[in-house]
C-alpha cells in the first residue's frame, strides 16, 4: 500500500489499533531500564579494569564474605518472585493479597539493603572505604549504585501501598505497579551480574 493511498483513506488499515497508554508507558519504562543497564555496564567495565589496582590495600579475597552475599541474593530473588505475585494480585483486584505481597517485597528489599549497609560500614571501619584504593572506589560505585536503586524501589513500594489504600485499583495504579515490577526484576538481573563477577569471581583470584 502506498503512502498516497493511505493519505486518501483508500484501503485504510482497519485492523490497526492505536497504542494503549498502558502499552506506551510500559514500553517507555522498558527503554529507560535498558539505558539503566548500559549505565551499570559502564560501572562494571570500570570495576573490571580497576580490579587489580588495590594500591597495597586489602583485595577482594580479604574483604568479601560469600555467606553474606548468599543471604543478600536469597532476599532479592525471593522478593522478585513475590513481586510477580503482587502483579497477579493486582490483576485480580484483590487488595489484601496485594498489600501482603507488596509488604513482603518491601521487607525483603529492606533485608537486602541492611545486609549491604552492614557490609559497607564494616569495610569502612576496617579502613577499606572507597578512598582506600581504585579497586574499592570502583566497588563502592558499582554496588552502591545498585543499592541506591534498591532504596528508590523501597520508596516506590511505600507510594504504591499508599496509592492502593487511598485511590484503589485505577488504570494508573495498574500502570505504575507494572513499571515497578519491571524495575524490580531488572535490579535482580543486575544483582546476578554483581554477585557473579564482583563477589564469586572476586574471591577466587
Amino acid at each position: 500500500m502506498s503512502v498516497m493511498q493511505m493519505a486518501s483513506g483508500e484501503h485504510a488499515p482497519a485492523r490497526y489499533h492505536p497504542a494503549t497508554r498502558f502499552g506506551v508507558t510500559g514500553f517507555g519504562f522498558y527503554v529507560y531500564l535498558l539505558s539503566d543497564a548500559i549505565l551499570f555496564s559502564a560501572l562494571f567495565a570500570i570495576f573490571a579494569v580497576l580490579k587489580g589496582a588495590t594500591a597495597g590495600g586489602p583485595g577482594a579475597q580479604a574483604l568479601f564474605d560469600v555467606k553474606n552475599v548468599g543471604w543478600e541474593t536469597a532476599c532479592l530473588l525471593t522478593s522478585s518472585f513475590v513481586g510477580g505475585l503482587a502483579m497477579l494480585a493486582a490483576e485480580a483486584r484483590r487488595r489484601l493479597p496485594l498489600i501482603l505481597s507488596l509488604g513482603a517485597v518491601f521487607l525483603l528489599g529492606l533485608g537486602f539493603l541492611s545486609l549491604e549497609i552492614h557490609e559497607f560500614l564494616g569495610m569502612i571501619h576496617a579502613g577499606a572505604g572507597p578512598d582506600r584504593s581504585a579497586f574499592l572506589s570502583a566497588f563502592f560505585a558499582l554496588v552502591g549504585a545498585h543499592g541506591l536503586h534498591i532504596t528508590v524501589g523501597l520508596v516506590w513500594i511505600i507510594l504504591l501501598l499508599i496509592h492502593v489504600q487511598t485511590m484503589g485499583f485505577s488504570a494508573s495504579y495498574r500502570r505504575r505497579l507494572f513499571c515497578f515490577s519491571l524495575f524490580w526484576h531488572v535490579l535482580d538481573i543486575v544483582w546476578i551480574a554483581i554477585f557473579t563477577f564482583v563477589y564469586l569471581l572476586g574471591v577466587q583470584s
Binding site: Y16, T20, G23, V24, S80, G84, F178
Partner: peptide, 23 residues
C-alpha cells in the same frame, strides 16, 4: 492484528505457574 510496535503488553503478566517455574 497490527499494533503499534513495541507496545504489545499481552503476556506481560504471566500465570502464577510461570513465576513459580522461574523462581
Amino acid at each position: 492484528q497490527l499494533r503499534t510496535p513495541g507496545t504489545d503488553v499481552r503476556g506481560t503478566v504471566g500465570p502464577w505457574s510461570s513465576y513459580l517455574t522461574g523462581f
